[in-house]
Design a protein around this nucleic acid. Structure first.
Length: 370
DNA sequence: AATCCGGGGTA
DNA sequence: TACCCAGGATT
């Protein structure tokens, strides 16, 4: 199994940017970006990220807003915040270098057993096993494990197998060492041993595969429980004055933490337009009157099916006017006014960015499709 | 063990 | 629509 797999990998491996130059820093960034994200999606983000932050210290010194802006569209934004925190930790505790020991790598935020093993094996050819979506599927089929890989007993067996299969050879040939094996197993899962319709006819290890021999490819890995989708309706409002728009930084500990967003709320805080006006009065302090609807956006993300109503609104009362105008008093934290140019550089969710595009191209978007 | 995270690609 | 993606952290 091992030799055939490694031979196949040496002849079929994709030419990925973190394989050509496999420094720990580059492999680390690639692994974080690839968490729950397909390789093809990651590629343009990876190149841009590495040119903006060529070293660990560059990342440690990065502006948080710019960093989040670089991540916009990749999702799971906590990954970017964990990257930043990790880089700062390396600058402070590891002289700006990627840590040496498995324990120190595992102690970094956003890095679990899989990612620590992947980084150290791929970058330094160290013999740590890995287990993720691809290898769960490859190994489960190989040994005919019908237990869903989410169950603890399956996890234990699969990690044991990943460790048992791993070549210990470190010196010399990376392709035949731990780096090669771990990547080969993942690559097989990505290119051949796919979730649906695996290409067993061209699989290098098909003759040794339990699932292939028994025709159980469709039953292995065992099915995990279905996703419970949830419909959700939210309201966002556009409040403008002097060609600036009212936005805020999302506080820590909630979705979109650290990103910029328009006033937005949904059930149970704001069930409808009236509820949204109450929400605005409470959070903003001024009298807000919600006006016409600009557009309704449907957005499917993770398990949510969101309908977002975007309304124009007017702000009156003590907080109207520029936030530097002391006669009117400043806007309460974390609210602020931002121009279109400023919004362009701020990190936003996908739906937040769609609102900006509505405002940026009013002649085409604002009054159509309403 | 389940849920959250709030993006995207594919059949 | 359903399912998956080089998962980790939290509860």
């Amino acid at each position: 199994m091992r030799k055939r797999l490694l031979t196949w990998f040496s002849e079929n491996a994709r030419d990925l940017p973190w394989r050509r130059d496999h420094s720990p820093y580059r492999v680390w960034i690639s692994e974080i970006m690839c968490q729950q994200t397909q390789v093809a999606t990651v590629l343009p983000y990876f190149e841009r990220f590495l040119s903006t932050y060529p070293t660990i210290r560059d990342l440690a010194n990065a502006d948080e807003n710019q960093l989040m802006r670089m991540w916009e569209g990749l999702g799971y934004y906590r990954r970017a915040r964990s990257l930043h925190a990790s880089a700062k930790k390396m600058a402070a505790e590891h002289e700006g270098e990627f840590p040496d020991s498995f324990e120190d790598v595992l102690a970094l935020p956003g890095i679990g057993r899989y990612t620590a093993g992947a980084i150290l094996s791929i970058s330094r050819n160290e013999a740590f096993p890995i287990l993720e979506g691809n290898t769960q599927r490859v190994f489960s089929r190989w040994i005919g494990l019908t237990t869903p890989p989410t169950e603890k007993i399956a996890q234990t067996r699969l990690w044991e197998l990943s460790d048992k299969m791993l070549p210990r050879k470190k010196a010399g040939d990376r392709t035949n060492g731990p780096a090669g094996f771990n990547q080969a197993a993942m690559e097989l899962g990505a290119l051949i041993c796919s979730p649906k319709a695996p290409k067993c006819d061209v699989c290098p290890v098909a003759t040794m595969c339990h699932a292939n021999q028994l025709g159980l490819q469709a039953e292995i890995p065992g099915k995990i429980s279905k996703v419970q989708y949830e419909s959700r309706t939210e309201i966002a409002v556009v409040i403008s004055q002097a060609e600036k728009y009212l936005v805020r930084t999302i506080p820590e500990g909630v979705r979109f933490a650290g990103m910029i967003d328009f006033p937005r709320a949904g059930p149970p805080e704001a069930e409808d337009v009236i509820g949204m006006e109450s929400w605005l009065a409470e959070h903003l302090g001024g009298d807000v009157t919600i006006g016409m609807r600009l557009k309704t956006i449907k957005h499917a993300v993770t398990r949510y099916r969101m309908t977002l109503h975007i309304h124009l609104a007017d702000l009156a009362g003590p907080n109207a006017g520029d936030n530097s105008d002391e006669e009117h008093g400043p806007l309460p934290e974390p609210w602020r006014w931002a121009s279109i140019d400023e919004l362009a550089d701020m990190p936003m969710s996908v739906t937040g960015r769609k609102i900006v595009r509505l405002l940026d191209r009013p002649q085409r978007s604002l009054f159509s499709e309403i």
